[in-house]
Measured scan of single mutants.
Amino acid sequence: AEKTGIVNVSSSLNVREGASTSSKVIGSLSGNTKVTIVGEEGAFYKIEYKGSHSYVAKEYIKDIKDE
């Protein structure tokens, strides 16, 4: 089941290729951006990003809701 969340950062949140802080950064999301969460892996959520799937750190996503 998909969930949505809100990016909870003051500046921007790195979007990564994989579920690791050493993964390549492929983009960023600004605070209060709504994201669609399709899964989770460790400390990361797998999200829909620009037509494919990428990862963001869970600690920076708030207001998780089931869609």
Rank of each mutant, 00 (worst) to 15 (best):
E40Y: 05
T36V: 14
E40S: 08
E40N: 04
I26L: 07
D63W: 11
Y49G: 00
T4H: 11
A19W: 05
T4P: 05
V25G: 02
V9Q: 07
S22Y: 09
F44A: 02
S12H: 13
N8S: 12
N32T: 06
I47A: 01
D66T: 13
S30D: 12
F44Y: 10
K65H: 11
E40F: 05
N8Q: 11
N14L: 15
I26D: 01
Y55D: 00
T36W: 13
V25I: 14
T33F: 06
S28R: 11
G31L: 09
D66G: 11
Y49H: 05
S54H: 09
K24E: 07
A43L: 11
T21F: 15
K50Y: 10
N14H: 13
K58V: 04
A19Y: 04
T33I: 07
V38T: 06
A19C: 06
K24S: 08
S23R: 02
G27A: 05
K58L: 03
V15Q: 03
Y49T: 01
Y60R: 04
V38R: 05
I64Q: 06
K46M: 12
S52N: 10
I64L: 10
V56K: 00
K50A: 10
T36L: 10
I61N: 01
V7D: 02
Y49I: 03
L13E: 03
S11D: 14
V7Q: 02
S20N: 08
G31A: 15
E59S: 08
I37G: 00
A43Q: 11
S28L: 11
A43V: 08
G51E: 06
V56P: 00
I26A: 04
K50L: 12
R16E: 01
Y60I: 03
A43K: 09
I6Q: 05
A43N: 13
I37T: 01
G42T: 03
V25K: 05
S22Q: 11
Y45D: 01
F44C: 03
K34G: 04
S11W: 09
A19P: 15
G5R: 03
S20P: 01
N32G: 15
G39Q: 04
E41N: 07
G42R: 04
A43S: 11
S12Q: 12
K24F: 06
S20M: 06
K34F: 09
A57N: 08
E17K: 06
S54M: 11
H53W: 11
K3S: 07
N8I: 13
S23F: 06
E40Q: 08
I37Q: 00
R16Q: 12
I64C: 10
S23Q: 04
K46P: 00
A1F: 14
Y45S: 01
G42W: 03
N32S: 08
I26P: 02
V15F: 02
E17P: 02
E17A: 10
V15G: 01
I6E: 04
E41K: 07
G39H: 03
S22N: 12
E17H: 05
K58F: 03
S30W: 09
E48V: 15
V25R: 03
S28C: 14
E67S: 13
D66I: 14
S23D: 06
V35W: 02
N14G: 09
G42L: 05
S22D: 14
G27W: 02
E2F: 15
S11A: 11
K24D: 06
G5F: 06
A1C: 15
D66L: 13
S52T: 13
G31V: 11
S11N: 12
N8H: 10
E17D: 14
S23I: 02
K3C: 13
T21W: 15
L29C: 03
T4K: 09
I37C: 02
R16F: 15
K24P: 13
T4I: 13
G39F: 03
G39A: 08
K46D: 02
N8P: 05
A1H: 14
E17I: 08
G18W: 11
G18E: 13
T33S: 10
S20H: 09
S23N: 04
N14T: 12
S11C: 15
N14Y: 11
N8R: 10
E17L: 07
V9N: 07
G42V: 03
K62V: 15
S20Q: 06
G18C: 13
I47L: 02
E41Q: 08
A1D: 09
S12V: 13
Y55S: 00
K24G: 06
T21C: 15
T21L: 15
T4A: 07
Y60S: 09
E17R: 05
R16N: 07
D63N: 10
L13R: 02
I64R: 04
S28D: 06
D66Y: 14
Y45I: 03
I26W: 02
V15T: 03
S52F: 10
T33M: 09
V56C: 04
L13Q: 04
G18Y: 14
G5N: 03
I47R: 00
T4L: 10
S12N: 10
N32E: 09
K50S: 07
A19R: 01
G5T: 03
F44T: 01
A1G: 14
E48G: 03
K58S: 05
Y60L: 06
I64D: 08
T21A: 12
I61D: 01
N8E: 08
G18V: 06
E48T: 09
L13N: 03
V25A: 05
T33H: 06
N32R: 07
G31T: 13
N32Y: 10
T21I: 13
L29W: 01
I26M: 06
I61L: 07
S52P: 02
V15P: 01
S12T: 14
A1R: 10
G39E: 04
Y55T: 01
G51D: 07
L29M: 05
D63M: 15
E40H: 06
K65V: 13
V38D: 01
I6S: 05
K62N: 10
D63T: 14
I6W: 13
G31N: 15
E67P: 12
A43H: 09
K65S: 14
S30L: 14
S23M: 04
G27L: 02
L13V: 15
Y49S: 01
H53I: 13
R16C: 10
S11Y: 10
V9E: 07
V35C: 04
D63H: 10
G27Q: 02
S30E: 14
S30G: 10
E59A: 12
I37K: 00
T4F: 14
G27K: 00
D66C: 14
K58T: 03
E67W: 08
S30Q: 14
G5D: 02
G51S: 06
V7S: 04
K58Y: 02
K62W: 09
G27S: 02
V38F: 06
R16W: 15
S11E: 12
A43F: 08
V9K: 09
K50D: 09
K46V: 12
R16S: 06
G42S: 05
D63G: 08
G42C: 05
S22V: 09
A1I: 14
K3G: 05
T33K: 06
D66Q: 12
E40I: 08
L29V: 08
K50R: 11
K62L: 11
V35K: 00
T36R: 12
E2Y: 15
I6M: 08
E40C: 08
S22A: 12
L29H: 01
A43I: 09
V25W: 05
K24R: 12
F44W: 13
I64H: 07
